[in-house]
Design a protein around this nucleic acid. Sequence first.
DNA 1: CACATTATGTATCGCTCGTTATGAAAGCCG
DNA 2: CGGCTTTCATAACGAGCGATACATAATGTG
Lengths: 202, 202
Amino acid sequence: MKADVCTARGRPREFCPDAALASALRVFWSKGYEGASMTDLTEAMGITRPSLYAAFGNKESLFRKALDLYEREKLDYISTALDEPTARAVAEALLRGALENQMAQDEPHGCLGVISSVACGAEAESIRAEVLERGKTAKSALIARFERAKAEGDIPAHVDVEGLTGYLFAIIQGMAVQAGAGVSREDLERLIETSLMVWPSN
Amino acid sequence: MKADVCTARGRPREFCPDAALASALRVFWSKGYEGASMTDLTEAMGITRPSLYAAFGNKESLFRKALDLYEREKLDYISTALDEPTARAVAEALLRGALENQMAQDEPHGCLGVISSVACGAEAESIRAEVLERGKTAKSALIARFERAKAEGDIPAHVDVEGLTGYLFAIIQGMAVQAGAGVSREDLERLIETSLMVWPSN
DNA sequence: CACATTATGTATCGCTCGTTATGAAAGCCG
DNA sequence: CGGCTTTCATAACGAGCGATACATAATGTG
């Protein structure tokens, strides 16, 4: 049980797992879980099938690791947005952060979470459940933030906070749908401007 | 060439094509184009594979016919909404119509168009293109309606009509994502109330 | 150097997919 | 009844899927 921690025995691997995982993330991001075949993945990652299975388990395990990477590196704008001083600033940071995430150059358009929660087949059911679970925690955090804003008088008293959160989530998810559908960045910026224009204030 | 129009020669078919198509629509609606297998479809339609191919061509052709049926019977709320007298009434009719469509009892939750435009694989590319095309025409119609509303002083002069249309579309698409993700009807109603509360007025 | 250990490349597994060939069954017409 | 036409059910096709068995190659250890 007490294994030497510094010795790497056996033949060393010839690829970087982090870089390979990043490539896999791009494939899942653009094609979805079921739409990404093992051939797509291995070709993008530059490794053979057995290497992939040895390093990442199976397809589902690889997807979860890619989802972790996605949350850590691409969805960090969400937690930073919650630190904005006003509810309006939180909403603006979320909308603009989502735009950058969904329309980044050299990255697939759209949102991996939305793609994975919409698609489809039977094998992806546990994947879907996990993605939905992660989305729920994000929504809870946003509700808590807006509750605080309401207590601070930052949101009008007559506003339903949970309704407002679901409303803002819907705009972001709708943006993801449109980004994946090929809508231009300029159009999404106008969408955001409109959202901010109608944002409830005192 | 001049065939008798009233004589049905040969063995009569033992199923109703319209009912079978309606069943197929429900399968596509809940599982998406690629998520729906021919086994799923034939079982739901109550017919065998060769009967399906003889009556509807192939899977893609069946999907297009189902999409036609969906637009005709489930998306009719869109064209009726455009007849509302004010821009706000149009928006409200669209939102409430979308809710009824996406959360109808005994029907799959979500929107077939959103599901089909998000998913995924390579074989569905031509399907995706067709769905996006139909969505564009709906968006154009809504833009034209809001242009008229703006000319009638029904929408504030400072509002960007195309931005407003994309914004409203995003809310509806986001609602579809949430409906497919299992959000309750009550939550979507609160989402709609919030959307109507912030709708721009003079 | 021989050994244990780990990674690699090839080739293949069983399975499901969409699609179709085949022949029997059921209805009209003469 | 015998020909003609269309639909039915069974069974199978080739292709692609995710996942692996196997032998080989490359490292550290005794």
